[in-house]
Design a protein around this nucleic acid. Structure first.
Lengths: 243, 243
DNA sequence: CAGTGGTCTAGACCACGGG
DNA sequence: CCGTGGTCTAGACCACTGG
C-alpha cells in the first residue's frame, strides 16, 4: 500500500496521534528523522502528509500539534451566529471589531437587502477566532433602520446575533446563502493568518427576521478551511414533506 | 513579499501560465531548475505551490499542465444532472455504470425517500468524468416504482436525469441536499484516481419530481475538489420576496 | 527507450518564537 | 539563547508514461 518511507512513517504517526486530544504537541521533524532513522526530507514529507490531511498543525519556531477543527453547520435551521456555532462545537469563540462605520449603502448591497441605494448603513468588519486562533474574517452590511446605534451595542457584546435579538428585538435566520471554496488571495490570507493560496471558504448570506420576514443584514465572510469543517445544508429534513 | 526563491519562481510562473488555455503543457521540474539556476528542490517547491493553488496539474511520467477546473453549481434551481452541468462549463461529460443491481431498500435510504424499508430499489454505482478525467463517483438509490427497467434504460443513455425525463416522465429537482469537504479515504481516492487524503466533496441530495413532488432518488456522490469548483446555493434570488 | 515527477540523503543556513 | 519548522544544494535512484 504505502511503498515509500514517508508514507509508512505517516501511517505510523496517524495511529499514534488519533488517540491524542486536539492541540497536543507531537514530535518535530528532527525527532521523527532520528527515531525512524531517515533523513530530514523523509521526516518532513511524513509530517507534511499529516498536515495535508488536516490531522496536525505546524507552526515555525513553535512545533507540531494535533489539529483543532470545528464543525460549522450552515443551514436555514441554524442561527447565523459565530459564537453559538463555535460553542456548539465545544470551543471558545471570540470576535473582534476591526471597523464599524456608517456609509451610504452600495447598490450591490441595497439590491439583496431591498433598500434604497445610498440609504444609511453600517459597514462592519470583524475577525473571529476559535480558541484564540484566527478562523474567520469578513464584512456585514446592516441597514441603519434595523439598529441605528450598532456601534454602541457592539461595546457590550461581540455577537451580532445577540445584539439583534436584544437591542432590535429580531430573530435572525439565514434566508439565502451561497458558499464556495476558494484559494485565499494575499489580502484574505493576511486577515486569516494563513498563507496566500491556502483554501478558504467564502460564505455569503442574507439574513431575515423570522416572524416579520424583514431583511436584517448581508454577510460576506471568509473562513479558514483548515480550522472550520463547513457543512452546508438546505432547510428541512430529508423525507416526505406535506404538500 | 516573496522572500524565498521558490515563491519568486512560482510568482513568475503564475504570470506566464494564466495566459495559457487549460491543459497546456508547461515546463517540468528539471527545466525550471535549469532556467532559474536553482536546485531541483526549489524548482519542485515552486511547481508544488502552483499545484496547491490548483493552477496546474502534475502527472508522473507525463508532465505538468495548466489546470482544467469546472464550476459546478448545486442549487434547487439547477437540474441535478452531471452532463448538463459539465456541458454548461464547456467541457465534455461522461458517466460509466460500474454496478446496477436491484436490492431491498435499506432503512436509511427508505426513510428520506418515504418508501417502505425492503421495497425493491435500484442501487446504481457510477463514475463520472470531465474531459475524460475522473472527477466524480458515487451511488444513487432509485426506487423500482419510479422506473422498473432502469438497467435497460441505462443502455441507451448514461444520464440519469435524461432517463427519468424520457422514460419516467419526471422532471427531477434537488429537494434537499447537504455538502461537505472531506479528506478522501483510500477507497474513495482509488475510485476518483486521486490519493488518500486529497480533498474531496461529499454531496448528498434527495431529488423530487417538480410537478408532483414525488421523491425520485437519493444520491451520494464524491467529487474531486481539484477538478470541480463546487458552488452551493440555496434557491431563489437574494432579495425581497413576497410574503 | 528517454523523460517525467516521486523519493531520498546528508548536509547547510535561515527566520521565527519562546524562555 | 535554543529548538522549531522553512528553505536550499547537489547529488542519487526509482516508478511511471509515452513513443
Amino acid at each position: 500500500m504505502a511503498a515509500t518511507k514517508f508514507r509508512e512513517i505517516a501511517e505510523h504517526l496517524v495511529r499514534e496521534i488519533t488517540l491524542l486530544p486536539p492541540g497536543s504537541r507531537i514530535e518535530g521533524e528532527h525527532e521523527v528523522a532520528a527515531r525512524f532513522g531517515v533523513g530530514r526530507a523523509a521526516a518532513r514529507a511524513a509530517l507534511q502528509e499529516l498536515e495535508r490531511r488536516l490531522l496536525v498543525c505546524r507552526v515555525r519556531g513553535v512545533g507540531t500539534f494535533t489539529a483543532r477543527r470545528i464543525d460549522y453547520l450552515v443551514s436555514p435551521d441554524q442561527p447565523p451566529s459565530w459564537s453559538r456555532t463555535v460553542r456548539a462545537a465545544h470551543s471558545r469563540p471570540r470576535t473582534v471589531v476591526r471597523r464599524c462605520e456608517t456609509v451610504p449603502m452600495p447598490p450591490e448591497v441595497a439590491g439583496p437587502l431591498g433598500r434604497e441605494p445610498g440609504s444609511p448603513c453600517h459597514r462592519l468588519q470583524r475577525r473571529s477566532f476559535v480558541d484564540e486562533l484566527p478562523a474567520c474574517w469578513g464584512t456585514e452590511w446592516v441597514p441603519a433602520d434595523v439598529l441605528p446605534e450598532l456601534g454602541v451595542a457592539l461595546g457590550a457584546s461581540d455577537s451580532l446575533d445577540r445584539i439583534l435579538r436584544e437591542s432590535a428585538g429580531a430573530t435572525p435566520r439565514r434566508a439565502w446563502w451561497r458558499a464556495a471554496l476558494e484559494c485565499a488571495s494575499a489580502e484574505t490570507a493576511a486577515e486569516l493568518g494563513s498563507r496566500a493560496g491556502d483554501p478558504a471558504w467564502l460564505v455569503e448570506s442574507l439574513n431575515e427576521d423570522v416572524p416579520s420576514g424583514r431583511l436584517l443584514y448581508l454577510s460576506h465572510r471568509w473562513l479558514r478551511a483548515d480550522t472550520v469543517r463547513l457543512v452546508l445544508e438546505t432547510g428541512g429534513t430529508p423525507g416526505p414533506r406535506p404538500a
